[in-house]
Write a protein that binds this DNA or RNA. Structure first.
Lengths: 335, 335
DNA sequence: TTGTATGCGTTATCAC
DNA sequence: GTGATAACGCATACAA
């Protein structure tokens, strides 16, 4: 079933059929009606390949997700998915390893699939600086800032990671904790990791807290297991911390289990605060204290910006979404 | 940059270039070398649309995920993703609401994208019975059985849900529990929900346990919140259950939180066992007892079967993957 | 072993 | 308003 068949069935030409299919104006009501009827009756579906070959692009939107074990990105993908589902654009989700170069991957995907726009979930500034010039379609970097990068087709939606991490540490310190440990991200390969680390330092410096990066910080991947392992290593050093900041909720969950396995209670012996505000966190026992960033809001903003760039040729913009320090049940006053 | 350009650059014809690109034999080493060199230097990427238009199909594999809040499917998608990444096939993931008709969705997607094969994550037999005949490419239904369905292009990979649920209940009963509650799936719209429910009844019947579906069973969606709400409703009825079986780990997590909020301890007051064996479960406090099905194994089997059908024209097969009752920390002997 | 020519299903540019 | 027809980039049958 092609538009040719449709043309034959209705007695019109392929051009008219194509016009109807694309909601173009110069078609008589009669023709439109007849053709639409034929479309419905025949169950015709347009051949996306032919259309896109002709148009030299697809109408799809691409999501490049960096790292797979981070539940935060799962929630984000879910929200983006349901947001995009309201539009006509097909969504393509591509997962790559945390170590891969997301920009090069996108460049390759662009050539192959010619999407309308790209959402990057996670990313590394260096990769963008080196290779993003090769990408010409509108893109949004989600969860990292791109406001310092000189690309007018690259927007970003992010939390102020540095400030948020500082506030998380401030909260712990505000509860009377003086010995703090941090399970963070890789400072070298992850902007997010670096910024949240810097926020930690900001807080320690401001409050005159003794913090030795070599001993009190572990930079790992954003996963349950890495959070667990990192916490075990921190405990081995016997620094007697009474509070722990994990730069992602998944790591916080791993950390809590590690503390428990080492005979420590949360929050009685060690307060733990995470980062992300996963839905899951509110169902845990204890409910996870966290730096809550509205995943839904981030998803909405990202999609909104991308569609604005695509449909209304808007320029790049850089949104900072708010965060809230949520002290739930995994943190308490230091006694 | 097209194969025409490549042909001009190398002095060969487009056919030869095409042959090299598709690893076909009848090409001289010299030509192959020269063309491959040109490909690398020019950064040429084949135009997927043109290729697929010509071939009347794409080489992509489609995953249709039913329901988005079930972490089990997230883990499954992740495993499938990494498994498929080892091949040349692009993966297309489509999420639909738990209430949607996955088969009709797939039919539409087939016409539009012409994939090589489909993996269904979750599904309803009725939908398959009514509409699957419209799909001609190989498909695998993951987490539901299709062995009773009369389609030779539909394979399935699943756990014996009914038996597994029975064994979960058996385990609780074996611990001395006599009053049991179940947070399960929707028996009408989900095969999985129905089978696991039947397994529960099997166990109760066998052990002479009093189980009143109206009072002791809640059929809801597979999500944290639904598990929470369902458990609250069960508690309101004051049936004094000492053990609870949740037909999915996400529901078990919601259930545990609900119990806690109602002043009950897990496992001291109520034992809880889930179903799925999520990675997350092992990091919770208490570690979640569960019916563990190897997500990785399911993913591997599914992909293997699908590729077998696609590449080696194998017929449909129906795999039952094993499960293990894992009693961790959320269940204990009834006192 | 290689090249030429055709057509896949669509859109868009012309004429009418 | 409408219909012929030429591309789009590729794979492939057929010729050489």
């Amino acid at each position: 079933m092609t538009i040719k068949d449709l043309a034959a069935m209705t007695g019109y030409g392929v051009a008219t059929v194509s016009r109807v299919l694309n909601n173009q104006p110069n078609v008589s009501d009669k023709a439109r009606k007849a053709i639409l009827k034929a479309v419905n009756e025949s169950g015709f579906e347009i051949n996306a390949n032919a259309k896109q070959l002709k148009q030299q692009r697809t109408n799809s939107i691409l999501v490049v997700v960096k790292g797979t074990s981070n539940e935060m990105f799962s929630e984000l993908v879910e929200s983006i998915q349901s947001k995009i589902a309201e539009t006509e654009y097909p969504l393509f989700v591509d997962y790559i390893d945390e170590d891969f170069n997301e920009v090069l991957r996108a460049v390759s995907l662009c050539r192959e699939k010619k999407p309308l726009g790209i959402l990057f979930l996670g990313g590394n500034s260096d990769h963008f600086i080196n290779d993003f010039e090769k990408i010409e379609i509108p893109c949004v970097l989600v969860s990292n800032s791109a406001s310092d990068l000189p690309f007018d087709n690259l927007s970003s939606v992010t939390t102020d990671d540095r400030l948020a991490a500082k506030k998380a540490m401030d909260a712990l310190i505000g509860l009377g904790h003086k010995r703090l440990a941090v399970v963070g991200g890789d400072r070298e390969h992850s902007d997010t990791g670096r910024l949240r680390y810097e926020g930690c330092l900001d807080s320690c410096t401001e409050h005159g807290i003794d913090f030795d990066t070599k001993l009190d910080y572990e930079g790992v991947r954003f996963s349950y297991q890495d959070g667990y392992d990192a916490t075990c290593r921190l405990l081995e050093r016997d620094r007697k911390f009474t509070a722990l900041f994990a730069a992602a909720d998944v790591m916080a969950i791993g950390a809590i289990r590690a503390l428990k396995d080492n005979g420590l209670r949360v929050p009685e012996d060690v307060s733990v605060i995470g980062f992300d505000g996963l839905t899951l966190g509110s169902f845990l026992v204890p409910k996870l204290s966290t730096v809550e960033q509205s995943v839904k809001l981030m998803a909405e903003k990202s999609v909104e910006i991308l569609l604005g760039c695509i449909e209304r040729k808007q320029g790049a913009s850089h949104e900072i979404v708010p965060f809230i320090i949520r002290q739930k049940e995994s943190t308490k006053q230091n006694s």
